[in-house]
Design a protein around this nucleic acid. Structure first.
Lengths: 211, 211
DNA sequence: TAGATTGTTAATCGATTAACAATC
DNA sequence: TAGATTGTTAATCGATTAACAATC
């Protein structure tokens, strides 16, 4: 693997979508230029942090003027890969799986779930939000033929590792995992855990500190 | 507010649910004692980190033996507040809102969404997973009467700040925000953002580094 | 010009990891 | 006992923030 010397830090990367949302809002209001100071204030961030993040997008700010909004939008969109859409498959068409399949918003994040899989025959061969649900037995064939690189796991915890293995075997390189289990994967595969329990832990802790 | 000198760190707190899942698995396999070394290995963590985290639960390990599984489960459950369930309201009964309302798993995380709100009359006064949907105009009355402290926001981005203000006005102390906007709140209110776009950014970056 | 704002270097902070003595 | 494992202190690391010169 390439060492990627100036790879962007994970926290910085996670902030990028926030900047993008904010910049779209501003653009909508007719704003053409904006300073890191203002962005920092409105998003509750440190201004130096914002400047360093924006530097990572390649946009150069002008003293007194700030940054060109359109340029920032363009470069962050590029940085986040929202242009070249990624196709993905989803496994596990339960409540959550259905919700994700139906969600229209992913398109603007460069994610396109093209097909889904489940073992429940009664769901198979139906369409949800225009996306066909196949029987799990078809997964290897379809994923490799369509050259899919992202797998979304929305199966129960106990099945998640098996599905994960299956996805990797089929050629998937990145996994978005909604099951509350730690998945074992080879070094070159990325697992991004969507961690509702962790979020709730923080909420709960906050309330505990209240009284 | 109390200064809370030995408040647990956020990263450590986020790891707790992972330990808990893992420990339940082990308990299920009949394991009664487990070492930090083994946990670390299986969850891809540093063993010292695990020991420090476990120390925070108050459980004392025994050299050569490790930690008592049941004791850990008990203390982490307590630490995460999974016992004393928190009641919550949800605002915005769209696809995502419905999925969250229908999800049975939150109960075991100590979260109990008791009612939902929407402005769409055609959804109001119906029930989803046994939870009644009320018109938004009822929110203040209900939240304060039921003494709800958590609000879940699943409305479109453009309405999120208004809903947030409304929730806080009604007495909510913590907000779980699924809308892709930065919410402005007073210091004493916690916002926990559930940040799908950020997760996707990391996935996308990984794939970009691939080729 | 004066002053706001940028971009960069240095200091700080918090979390992780390494080293190691204590203990069962 | 010997050796695995704990718990703690010290070193490292990465990210954030402070300080400040450069610039429009």
């Amino acid at each position: 693997m390439r060492t990627n010397i100036d790879s962007i830090s994970k926290p910085a990367l996670r902030r990028m979508p926030h900047y993008l949302n904010y910049l779209y809002e501003k653009k909508n209001d007719g704003v053409t230029h904006i300073s890191s100071t203002v962005i920092a204030e409105e998003l509750d961030l440190n201004p130096v942090k914002v400047r360093k993040d924006l530097a990572r997008t390649g946009v150069i700010g002008k003293p007194k003027t700030g940054f060109d909004v359109d340029e920032l939008i363009l470069n962050i969109t590029e940085l986040l890969g929202y242009n070249n859409s990624h196709e993905a498959v989803l496994v596990g068409v339960g409540q959550l799986g259905r919700a994700l399949l139906s969600y229209k918003g992913f398109a603007s994040y460069g994610l396109n779930i093209v097909v889904a899989f489940d073992t429940d025959e009664s769901i198979c061969n139906r369409k949800i939000n225009g996306k066909k649900v196949f029987h799990l037995s078809k997964i290897k064939e379809l994923v490799s033929r369509l050259k899919i690189r992202i797998g979304v796991i929305t199966v129960p915890a106990k099945n998640a590792q098996d599905i994960c293995d299956l996805l990797i075997e089929s050629g998937v390189l990145a996994i978005w995992n909604f099951a509350p289990v730690h998945l074992k994967v080879p070094d070159n595969i990325l697992v991004q855990n969507e961690n509702m329990a962790a979020s709730l832990a923080i909420l709960s802790q906050h309330l505990k500190e209240k009284r």
